[in-house]
Nucleic acid binder design. Structure first.
Lengths: 241, 241
DNA sequence: ACCTGAACACCGTTCAAGT
DNA sequence: ACCTGAACACCGTTCAAGT
């Protein structure tokens, strides 16, 4: 009863539609499930059709990163550089947290797209506007590393890599703790201390947001101190000898 | 003229031989070229033979990481925790630098093998031996993140992602700088400042080792300060409140 | 019981044949 | 000129048939 013949496609494919669909697919099925073929299927299109809008899979991933960078709000410049940087990083973090695959995707990109370069340029501008030397700004950017994007490699997700309590019977848990305390006494101590009120036995009690801000503030405080004492890399290298 | 029949294999396959061959293959051909089939070929063996010594590719990668962790020398404990940690991190870095694929492999692992847990346990022990509280140790480990392994994500490898000077004709270079200065003036400033004596135009002048130590020392100094003032996460959270 | 060839269910991408 | 089915050269892993 529809007037349109079945062969007429609703919306013609374009780059933005391809990227948007790729982001949704990665969000919902995980980055490991994102293949050109699967994406084509999702778009109800033959695989080769995608290659009209994106040169290859690498460029697809670059484009997806650009979409996420676009989701980070603009910097709200205020006179306090520390506050400006801090706020921006935490807002980038919010964008990244919405797309769990983005961290890995950003990590794996080696080339920089214009959108990424623009973000970096903007970021550098926050330090320079705060009166930082180009030299200190340079090294501060390095020290921030991926924190500039609002993430760090979480080497400690759910502490020692064990399953959450609900999945493990109590007697096995007891044996695990026993075993851990013998083989990795220090890890166990830290894991037990990290357990907050969530009732797990070995970890998962980490407040990621707190950990992130702890390291971020440690670095920002360090930058502030060096800035205050007119740090230069030349002098630092001389002192290091 | 050989007495041995052709069918007799020289050395029977075992787990260690498989892992060693995988490490060599990744070193020489890159991690992206490491496939079960290619590895089997390298070992002059049918692909399925590998599965006798390793459950699947994930376990192969875990094993490879273990090999690299094994190459990190033992900690040289001395009374100065800061020196102990610093030395250990820099020696881990040396091991990692010998295997360019290792960074990515460690990043991608989610489970922790016994060898990795042992390394972490040992690492935590260095802070505890230095008189750190379990609480501060926990957060310090988080802040170090992948620096504990001697690496950080190098978001700035060869600065802005451009090719080295030799590959680019001068007039194109000039145009590039012109373009950069308009679109990304801040990046250009930093890149120009980072250019040391290596004669490149846009970057590649970064001293990776210096950048690494800069951030490491910033963090270690921060830990020392917090340790000196009996920092606790509870108080920090209350202050943040 | 052990080993392994063939097969399965995928990939990214090329290319030539169709409209 | 545009589009696309089939093909190519790979994957990791299963499985049943061979010894």
């Amino acid at each position: 009863m529809t007037q349109q013949p079945v062969t007429a496609r609703r919306t013609p494919l374009n780059r933005d539609r391809v990227l948007a669909a790729a982001v949704v697919l990665a969000d919902e099925a995980g980055i490991e499930s994102l293949s050109m073929r699967r994406l084509a299927q999702e778009l109800a299109v033959v695989p080769m059709a995608i290659y009209k809008h994106v040169a290859n899979k690498e460029e697809l991933l670059d484009g997806m990163v650009d979409v996420i960078v676009g989701e980070i709000g603009p910097a709200l410049h205020n006179p306090d550089w520390k506050d400006t940087v801090r706020t921006r990083v935490l807002s980038a973090r919010q964008a990244l947290l919405r797309h769990p695959w983005a961290r890995q995707a950003i990590e794996s990109r080696t080339g920089r797209t214009p959108a990424v370069l623009e973000y970096m340029d903007d970021f550098i501008g926050m330090f320079l506007a705060g009166g930082f030397s180009v030299d200190l700004t340079h090294h501060a950017m390095h020290a921030l590393g991926s924190r500039m994007w609002g993430f760090t490699q979480e080497l400690f997700d759910n502490e020692a890599g064990y399953k959450s309590e609900a999945e493990v019977p109590p007697e096995v848990q007891a044996a695990m703790v026993q075993d851990m305390s013998q083989r990795y006494p220090n890890i166990l101590q830290v894991a037990m201390a990290a357990r907050h009120d969530d009732g797990s036995v070995v970890g998962q009690g980490c407040d990621d947001q707190f950990e992130f801000e702890f390291a971020l503030d440690l670095l920002l405080d360090g930058f502030e101190r060096l800035h205050g004492q007119d740090w230069t890399s030349e002098r630092a290298m001389r002192d290091r000898g």
